[in-house]
Design a protein around this nucleic acid. Structure first.
Length: 680
DNA sequence: GATCCTCGAGTTCC
DNA sequence: CTCGAGGATC
């Protein structure tokens, strides 16, 4: 291999790199190819040949590096120089949120009615994956995902394969360091084409564009990412060294565009709440005609000096807000209304729907909750209904399109007998839920009881899912939870879709579950009205299973949050000879947990008397560990946010609890503040 | 007796 | 996530 590159070869390689990048930019960013594909191929082949001959020419910013970097064993963690914050979002379906945001900004800036309207940068909110691109001396040196905001994953090799992302910034000369932040996403058309291709190859298609983009960037093998038609738009910056920033956010994006970074041109500079609302309305009508999915718009105070004055609340900038679009709706038809039997025998009507794609997923089922709900909406088999995928996940039938109701439909009627076991269905006076009276005689209830027993928060038996429980119960191998501990590998391996390996794994998981805690065991029993929280209180109060089983009503009523209804339910459960027998068999099978005496009140510490609610993921700590530490310090952990909550601890990717906390004015702690509080 | 705070239970899709 | 209902509180 020659050590030195002849100057004319080096010059030729440099020219080829620039030429190819220029054509890439015209083709992928501007959508205006300037040379035929065949010519591009020739340039590319020539450059690759030169680099093969003189490997020192294969610099990290060479277009050939967009593919062919070796797969990595895992993605390394990268600490962001400047945290990648999330942005506060409003889901108000009207333009109202735009005015509310403007009013808040004016108030916080101390502006009076006499002051002119605030200038904003309004932009699209892309539905993809947030990425940080670090350029040093204009060369792309690092690409990282957002991760938890502080630490992301190194996806440099993958990001290099995205042709819209420049490997080298254009002139005018970029500063020593600039981090570009933006969203990697996929166009609808590209998504469809990719899926057709995957299906043709017999592979599973992706469900929605967002997942495709995220999944493609977080690939281990850059060659796979290279084959994905990903797009990119920048929306901001991270760390900057040696660049005197322009006065406004919009000018900043203009500069990024001049450097060759794709910036969407549906952004606008608007004035006041009215300007924001008008932008929102304009985009909402444009939405369906856009070649990509967006889930809303983003408003930012344009003047960087004002942004600085407004600052941050916990993890969110005060100067920006996302205004999400109303949940997506679609119409479909009701194929059937079936009823399901739950663990407690609750009968739930469920609508089977003709598959329909709403809000990024195909919906085939939607719960109708209970008899009253079906009657209120008067959903019938054959009806055309509007379904909505509200907020995030759970689909909901919004209503029936009565004009399209076919003739001769019948109102839904609750069956009088359980479809699974044939027992009578009863609906107690004044209650909303109808129940199968079959108890554990009903196979459906027995299966649900087993699934509950094995669930993560109970005994946590990994691998014991619905299909398997169906087989175990139907074959008669398992009648109650204690039978699980008698299963062996040959018996299991004889079942459908079960090999030696899975059977051995399951047996091991079952054996592992024998070592448990009293609260988990009590919860696993599935006593009505005794959930996770009550099980913990009972375990603490009585200290041992025998003490709990021996307790009378008066003793049970001493436990916090246990009243007459819950006490009666517990007494009824332990009075049942069959239940006592199963407990005996479980103990004989070797189920064990540490037992102590009754523990009196909670530990005392700096947090005594304080109630916490956790949401999102905390770095370096599981939810359980965080809860344990709060309790060790004398605090209480609750599941729901209310006025009585003292602190909400928000980790990365927080849920609706954070919104509720803000509504109620409950103080919110981020991971850092939480740690400080724990340490006193 | 009314109201508020919680917990329990059921559900969907990847 | 949402609804229903039990428990606590005033």
């Amino acid at each position: 291999m020659p050590d030195t590159v002849p100057p004319q070869i080096a010059e030729r390689a440099r020219w080829l790199r620039e030429e190819i990048e220029r054509h890439n930019y015209n083709y992928y960013v501007l959508d205006r190819p300037t040379i035929p594909d065949a010519d591009w191929d020739r340039l590319f082949a020539e450059l690759r040949a030169l680099e093969a001959q003189y490997p020192q020419l294969a610099t990290p910013d060479s277009p050939t590096q967009r593919i062919g970097a070796p797969p990595r064993a895992d993605l390394a963690a990268v600490r962001h120089a400047v945290p990648m914050l999330s942005i506060r979002s409003e889901t108000d379906a009207t333009a109202q949120a735009a005015y509310a945001f403007d009013a808040r900004i004016r108030r916080e800036l101390g502006l009076s009615v006499k002051d002119p309207p605030v200038e904003y940068s309004a932009e699209l909110k892309f539905d993809g994956l947030a990425i940080n691109l670090r350029y040093e001396e204009g060369v792309l040196v690092l690409g990282a995902t957002r991760g938890d905001g502080m630490t992301g994953e190194d996806v440099t090799a993958n990001v290099r394969t995205i042709r819209q992302i420049p490997l080298r910034l254009h002139t005018p000369q970029p500063p020593p360091v600039v981090e570009v932040r933006g969203e990697v996403f996929i166009r609808r058309e590209d998504f469809e084409r990719l899926n057709a291709q995957l299906q043709a190859q017999g592979e599973a298609p992706y469900v929605n564009p967002r997942n495709t983009a995220a999944g493609s960037v977080r690939q281990l093998d850059p060659a796979v990412t290279a084959r994905r038609p990903l797009s990119f738009f920048a929306y901001g910056i991270g760390e900057v060294v040696g660049w005197e920033l322009p006065p406004t956010h919009s000018a900043l994006l203009d500069q990024l565009a001049r450097w060759g970074v794709p910036v969407n041109d549906l952004r606008a500079v608007v004035y006041g709440g009215q300007g924001l609302a008008a932008y929102y309305q304009r985009i909402i009508t444009l939405r369906q005609h856009l070649p990509f999915d967006i889930d809303g718009v983003v408003y930012k105070v344009n003047a960087l000096a004002w942004q600085q004055r407004l600052g941050f609340v916990t993890r969110e900038p005060r100067w920006a807000c996302a205004h999400k679009f109303p949940p997506q709706e679609a119409t479909t038809t009701v194929l059937d209304i079936e009823v399901q039997v739950g663990r407690t025998g609750a009968i739930t009507p469920v609508a089977r729907l003709a598959p329909v794609f709403v809000g990024g997923a195909t919906i085939t089922n939607a719960t109708l909750h209970n008899e009253d709900e079906v009657r209120r909406k008067d959903v019938r088999i054959g009806d055309t209904v509007i379904v909505r995928r509200a907020g995030d996940v759970i689909p909901e039938i919004v209503g029936v399109v009565l004009e399209r109701r076919p003739p001769h439909t019948q109102p839904f009627r609750m069956p009088s007998r359980c479809p699974v076991c044939g027992s009578r269905i009863e609906r107690p006076e004044g209650e909303a839920v109808a129940r199968c009276t079959g108890g554990l005689y009903c196979p459906a209830q027995r299966k649900q009881a087993l699934l509950h027993f094995a669930s993560r928060r109970a005994l946590d038996i990994e691998g014991l899912g619905e299909k398997l429980v169906d087989q175990l119960v139907d074959s008669g191998l398992v009648r109650d939870p204690s039978d699980l501990f008698k299963l062996d590998v040959p018996t299991l391996a004889a079942l459908e879709r079960m090999g030696e390996k899975s059977a051995a794994n399951l047996v091991a998981a079952i054996a592992r579950a024998k070592e448990t805690t009293l609260e988990r065991f009590i919860y696993a029993l599935g006593i009505r009205h005794v959930g996770e929280s009550t099980a913990r209180d009972l375990a603490r109060h009585f200290g041992s299973l025998d003490a709990l089983m021996a307790a009378d009503e008066a003793a049970l009523l001493q436990v916090p949050d246990v009243g007459p209804v819950v006490a009666a339910s517990i007494l009824r459960f332990f009075a049942e000879p069959q239940n006592r027998q199963v407990i005996g068999k479980l103990r004989a099978a070797g189920l064990r947990w540490p037992e102590g005496g009754p523990q009196s009140a909670r530990a005392c510490g700096p947090l005594t008397g304080k109630t916490f609610v956790l949401t999102g993921t905390l770095p370096g700590m599981t939810r359980q560990e965080a809860a344990a530490r709060i309790e060790a310090a004398g605090g209480r952990v609750s599941e729901t946010v209310s006025k009585k909550t003292d602190y909400v601890v928000a980790g990365a990717d927080p849920g609706s609890k954070l919104l509720r906390a803000r509504e109620l004015g409950v103080p919110v702690l981020d991971a850092e503040a939480f740690k400080r509080l724990l340490e006193g």
